[in-house]
Simulated scan of single mutants.
Amino acid sequence: MKKKAITVLSGGLDSTVASAKFREDYQIHALTFNYGQKSAEMEIKSAKAVCKELGAEHTVIELPWLAELGNSALTSEESIPEPEDSELDDIESALKTAKSVWVPGRNVVFTAIANSFAEAENASIIIVGWDLEEAVTFPDNSKEFLEAFNTVLEVGSFDVIKIEAPLIGMNKNEIVEYGDSIGAPMELSYSCYKGLNYHCGVCESCMRRKRAFKNTGVEDKTVYSEDS
């Protein structure tokens, strides 16, 4: 009988690859959060498709109150930033973009809820897609955040539950290569901040995705806007 795992699955590239790593050894229950983000409908659609491919259970959790906190471009009328290619690796520019799409406490909330499910379902791990490239500008993707949250779970739970972040030391190029090597259904993933029926190709998330496939030579089956 397989062990149980909870995965925080946005339907994006990173969480899809991270979840796929554990599909052979774990019975996976994926959680997708609708927190009022512009891309919620497409993220949920993608996550469902990924779960079908991985044979995972899927639950959508509604968090409408989270959209009301802060003024993130993901959840408000603020425009989604469209950085230049040259700005992706410029720390100052990337940090500015990151702050504009920051949702207060998002990964803290998601991971805490995942822990509740893990305790209730006797799951031994929580899978997350946190990675090295995102950690440069998003502190809740960092190795330090991972280690700190695992310490919280050690202290604050009767059960032995560990957060597994298999991509924590990888950049996007490495994630795409790794995803390709394990047969992760990356073509089903959705990364766009704008929530369009296709990838806009110009938001930061789309640009990092597109660049990684191009850099690695892995076939990119993503449909991008003709204007990108």
Rank of each mutant, 00 (worst) to 15 (best):
K210P: 05
L188T: 02
S93L: 10
D85W: 12
E154P: 02
S86W: 08
L13I: 03
Y178M: 02
S191W: 09
E87C: 03
L132H: 14
F149M: 09
A94L: 12
V8E: 00
S116M: 15
D90P: 10
T222W: 09
K45G: 13
M42L: 12
V218F: 06
G12F: 01
M42I: 11
S124K: 09
K194C: 14
V152W: 12
V60I: 09
I127F: 11
E62F: 11
L188I: 02
A67P: 10
C203Q: 14
F22K: 01
K45R: 14
S46N: 08
E154D: 14
D14N: 14
I182Q: 11
D89E: 15
E24Q: 07
A56Q: 08
S181G: 03
E174V: 01
E24V: 00
K48C: 04
F158I: 13
L88Y: 14
V60S: 14
N107C: 11
E204Q: 09
W65D: 12
K96T: 06
G217C: 04
P104V: 10
I61Q: 10
A67N: 12
V17R: 06
V155G: 11
K45I: 15
A98C: 04
Y178P: 04
S39W: 08
E84W: 05
T59W: 07
N107D: 13
R106G: 02
I6M: 02
P64L: 06
N122K: 04
A30S: 15
N215K: 12
S72Q: 03
C192D: 09
K38Q: 07
L95C: 05
L9A: 01
A112V: 14
C200E: 03
S86Q: 10
I161F: 14
N71Q: 10
L69I: 13
I91L: 15
R23W: 04
A67Q: 09
V8H: 00
I182P: 08
E147D: 09
V155F: 11
V202I: 13
Y26T: 09
P81L: 01
F213Q: 00
L132E: 15
A112Y: 09
S10C: 07
K162L: 15
I182G: 02
E77T: 02
E119V: 15
V223G: 05
